[in-house]
Design a protein around this nucleic acid. Sequence first.
DNA 1: GACTAGTGTCATATT
DNA 2: TGAATATGACACTAG
Length: 638
Amino acid sequence: MKLLKSWGATGGGLLHLTVLLSLAGLRVDLDLDLYLLPPPALLRDELRPPGGPARPAHALSPFPTSGGWGGAGPLHPKARELDFLGPLEGHLLWEVRALGVPFIPRTRVDAWLVHSVADRDADGTHGLLGATASSAGGVGAGVDGGSQAAPGGGGDPLAAEEEEEKAAAEPTAQVAVSGGRASQENEVLREKCESVARSSRQEENETESSQEKSLQQQNNEDKNKTADESDWEVAKTTESRKEGVSLEDTPFQSTISDGMNSSAHNVNLSQAISHDVNLHEAMLLSPNTFRRDPVTRTSQTQEPFLQTLPGTNLTEFHPPADNQMRNLTSQDLLYGLDANIFDEINLLSLAVEGFDPMEVSFQEPDSDSGLSLNLSHNTSITKSNSYSTCNEDAVSYTSDLKNLSGHDLEGAVGGYCPEHSMLCHMDHSYEAGFQDLVFHNHTYHLQPGVPEPTSQSFSTSGKSQKMNRYFNNTDKNLSRDERRAKALRIPFSVEEIIRMPVDSFNSMLSRHYLTDLQVSLMRDIRRRGKNKVAAQNCRKRKLDIILNLEGEVCNLQARKKTLEREQAQYNKAINIMKQKLNDLYHVFSRLSDDQGRPVNPDQYILQCSHDGTVFIVPKELVAPGQKETQKGKRKNRS
DNA sequence: GACTAGTGTCATATT
DNA sequence: TGAATATGACACTAG
């Protein structure tokens, strides 16, 4: 459904914003023509009902108010720094609020918007998430909300309370509150809404026609839907002509509000929706519902809710790719603005004041690390029942849902989680564990099988086992550190964290806005990663040393064998030499002189010449040195 | 079920 | 002094 709003009377430059709204698994494309408004005071005077009371002071946001809307809501923390939303934040808030429909945040800016608008609804009677319709077709509510905090905005607080009570009690009468000058603008607005709604319905009808061809089973449902849409169109047109445009008065709005606040999702909810059903968003929306109503949470299941969406082919549902979703949010929401700025904002939002990534952490089911940060963040659903009482939590909560659902896990670590649709099939016991996971577990890893004693984490229940299995299945291809990094939304890959030089690592830590927890985890990842590599190298080195030692032993054994062989050969040669000498001595003993007498060995010696000739020489003819040599030889022979 | 190899991690020492 | 590296010890897992 596309709605077009324009503030013709207020004039100004045209700023076209396309806001992607998601409602109970229904994606609602809202085209907003926002004109740069005149100064807030002028706008308040122009749009506020004549004599309309300002909102009571107790409903003011605790956040610092912006200058753009005169206290309409808190500035995005990064908006203060970048000053990009100064002229826009109030307008955008107003537009979102004016729709009176649940707004599923996709980006930090979205979360902040939801948070801001919810904060503005501090009285608890309004709000985007499951709140009842804003008063006076949103116009009055928005203006009043903007004027309530305006310096010198005037108005009686008591009267404002009465007005709000009256509006809560008589929603239909709220239109009259915005009468007067606003009625003329409503008339113009109504015409534009009708024209855009017609074109939108035409597109939807075309889509339905295509689906009817392929999905014959849904024919009846589509026909009913078309009929219902016609009825809704007639009713809306008639009602609008009677009372002016009031988005909240449409069946769509009322149904949405009812659906958000209770388990009843009647058929009207599907009347104004497209067939592009996002089950993941439906899942995301469901916790909002049971978050507001725990009783309903336990009694309501997801599937019946989905089954109440006629024309929705759940079996053929294909969740949109995450990049598509991101494109839709980053482009549609901030269309016309510098995307780089908002990319930076999304990155910077990691360090947004009040946003604690630990809130999105989960218990590591299979980690054997003993490191436990044991942060004690008491953010809980019970505290978030009223967004106006837990502002920071509101932002964190929306972020948590995005994160855990896999939608916003597409950072450098982990990437897009294609299994996010699995969440849509979880029963509520699972969701309860999911809830515990989000809001009670503040450790990012834990000894496997060892329940966290101080945590109400899901690890201590059957739900937690389901959750563990889910994460094990979902991230089983990821390392523990990768899962941890993904849980903490660290915008760097584990490989980068480990591999980059220390200078680059430190500069990276200083350049980016990272929480202490993220920095700590990154350092742990880096330390563990390097130690892992070191351990691998160490083991490899140890193995190499062992192998080298084994090779050395083999070499030494071979050397020993060689030496033994050489020794044997030498011994053999020595024995041969001995044998020759013995033989020679035996010949020498048989020698005789010229008279035939045996030669006395004590008087003669054998002397070898250089040419091998052996002479028998009398000892008295041999030099003293030669005599000693001959004596030694004789001793050896003996 | 015991055993073993491989691996991750931590604590500590060394560079 | 801090970071990187090396290594022993322990726990866990898979075969």
